[in-house]
Write a protein that binds this DNA or RNA. Structure first.
Lengths: 368, 368
DNA sequence: GAAATGAATCAAAGCGCTTAGATAATTCCT
DNA sequence: AGGAATTATCTAAGCGCTTTGATTCATTTC
């Protein structure tokens, strides 16, 4: 590509100074209409496109926001450096009809994070904000993160995608907002959901509507969200006067570990009345194993999830779950970031968004 | 945010020149190991994050690729400035269980473009490439586009998201790759699929396997892809010695127009044996209307689509279609872009990727 | 031990834009 | 008409980094 035209070329062509060219684009009202036309025409003829690098350097702001989107599907361990592959491989078979796999790469899409990402994108677009979407790369995660940080004015990150120290380092330079994980990274803004209410509501539903009291809580990865859900689960059980027939099996450590636990339970024939899963993904794993073991859901055992991912309404039986407002969460992250840019000194924000219980088939309800 | 540390600060702290600092990050092997440690330590302590703006300006490259992703769901007319909202509103009800709507904003996700976008992202991440995802905004589309163009070294665009002239203007500065629309924008690289083979194969399937000959081709938006599909459809019919019992209803102009046409056909009781739709989205509209009209698919009439979007395997009956390798297409776009950066003078490339027929329920087949 | 060779570091010139502050061109009054 | 008050434009100083060519330092060779 021939090096493109710059302000200098446009200025010369229009017979004005480079300052006027700049003003024409950044503060049109400061330039006399006739001059503006001149400059615009020159720019048009030359095919001038302002360099964002130069602008960013001069202004001290890049004008873009960043999203660090670790790919949980490539590395289902729940985060970088926490374990190897080996995850929802066979699981996706339930969802994707055979032959629908893309290049042999089984994928379960969109996931929770994907929908949040969608929200971030939509909100940025709505505001005409440039958005840099960075990808976690199991290998050189930190390098990528640092690269992105150097390109943006604010950064949105997903839970456990980044080591705390690295995040803290970035947060010293630019605003950072994290979704979930309210406990960690106390210096940065957070967007979370009301895990407690959700978990309590769905547990009480199982108890009150379906008359189930022997419930087992299970989940693969530890996180503050999951901790809160377990806590509320316990609370609901206690309040209902029901004991813990089955001890929670959380954190199981990984999805294969969850599968193994459920498999063992099936073999020993000590099924609970319901599996209350920490996340939808966990629930999918559980249902997968139950299916293999010939255990009928919800007839023999109920299953519930948490998140509201798309796959949950696709599988049979469809998954009763607690839905997070994922798109809204993404949008909110953008709002917080932009707000923080204007008010760097406001104390850290932690927004909790409401959730809603979605009753489907897996708990025994039959939706319309 | 306090203005962050720069090369100058790091250099001073480490007792070297700024050049050495730069070398430490860009060409580590040129710097003596001991010096490197010194610099790295200083950078670490200071929390130094290199400015991408400055680097970009100095190097003449931003180091990022761009994706211009017009949101077809916000504006289902198929492109900016082609019509208002009003589209798959009720349609998504088939897919989303009630209560699953997000903030009243019915969404059908992921769409064709979303999956291609996914491919672009994954490939960029894999290569550690920064990716700027720009959003089309029905209002100031061109401004946004220009802004993005100024931020990246290469741009991937979706069909009909950008007026030809605007695209041409950009393409003079940086490499551009477009997905589909092989006819337009002849100066830029293209990634397309073998529309003809796909359309022919699925048509022949209807004819040979299901013995249907009275087929109606229908689609909302005109595009070179759809043109090719219609062409192949006609060819298959001719070769089979079957006439056109029903004239193609393409381009219908919009999704509501498609719905209207099908509705009329139902009322007049002149149903074809099958609706061969230009896209999956068209097929979903068709099936939606047929359902309302009480026409059984595939019993009374078969329906086929083209694209292979996720929704197609979710609805009942599931949609027989021609699957495009969407993720691969996205990945290919990135490859082309990077390749083009190294070889600016190679003649324009047009890659055609193969497609595959996916037989599901809507044609009368019953997949495993 | 001096010259020659190679390695490591540095000085300095931009990259294309923004934006004070200075200057020039208009407009408004009296 | 002449000067004050505006308005429009320009001059010039960076913004933080990369990179060439020069310089310095360390090592090798005769």
């Amino acid at each position: 590509m021939a090096k493109g035209p710059t302000v200098y070329h446009v200025a010369e062509r229009a017979g004005v100074s480079i300052a006027t060219v700049s003003f024409t684009f950044r503060q049109p009202e400061k330039v006399k209409a006739s001059t503006r036309e001149l400059v615009l025409a020159a720019a048009e003829e030359l095919g001038y496109v302002p360099s964002a690098s130069a602008r960013g350097l001069a202004r001290g702001r890049t004008g873009a926001l960043g999203l660090f989107a670790y790919d949980y599907l490539l590395d289902p361990s729940g985060g970088p450096g926490q374990g190897g592959p080996g995850g929802p491989g066979d699981l996706s078979q339930d969802v994707d009809a055979p032959g629908d796999r893309e290049d042999g790469n089984l994928r379960l899409f969109p996931l929770y994070v994907d929908e949040v990402q969608r929200g971030v994108e939509l909100e940025c677009w709505r505001r005409g904000q440039a958005l840099l979407v960075g990808g976690g790369n199991p290998a050189n995660n930190e390098a990528v993160l640092s690269d992105i940080a150097g390109r943006v004015d604010g950064l949105a990150v997903f839970p456990r995608s980044v080591p705390v120290e690295a995040l803290a380092r970035i947060a010293r330079r630019i605003p950072v907002v994290e979704v979930s994980e309210s406990q960690r990274n106390r210096g940065v803004d957070h967007v979370t959901v009301d895990n407690a209410s959700g978990a309590r509501a769905i547990t009480e539903h199982l108890i009150n509507v379906h008359g189930l009291t022997d419930l087992l809580f299970i989940g693969a990865m530890p996180s503050s969200d999951n901790d809160e859900r377990l806590e509320a689960f316990r609370g609901a059980l206690t309040d209902a006067g029901a004991g813990l027939g089955h001890e929670p099996r959380y954190p199981a450590g990984s999805e294969p570990a969850v599968a193994e636990i459920v498999r063992t339970i099936c073999q020993q024939g000590v099924l609970p009345q319901a599996f209350v899963c920490a996340t939808d993904q966990d629930a999918l794993v559980v249902m997968d194993v139950l299916f293999e073991a010939g255990v009928a859901v919800p007839k023999q055992v109920a299953v519930t999830g948490f998140d509201g991912i798309a796959a949950g309404r696709v599988i049979r039986p469809s998954l009763t779950t607690v839905r997070q407002p994922m798109e809204r969460m993404g949008r909110t992250m953008v709002e917080l970031l932009l707000d923080r840019l204007d008010h760097p000194d406001k104390p850290p924000v932690e927004l909790r968004l409401p959730v809603s219980v979605v009753l489907r088939e897996s708990c025994g309800c039959t939706p319309a």
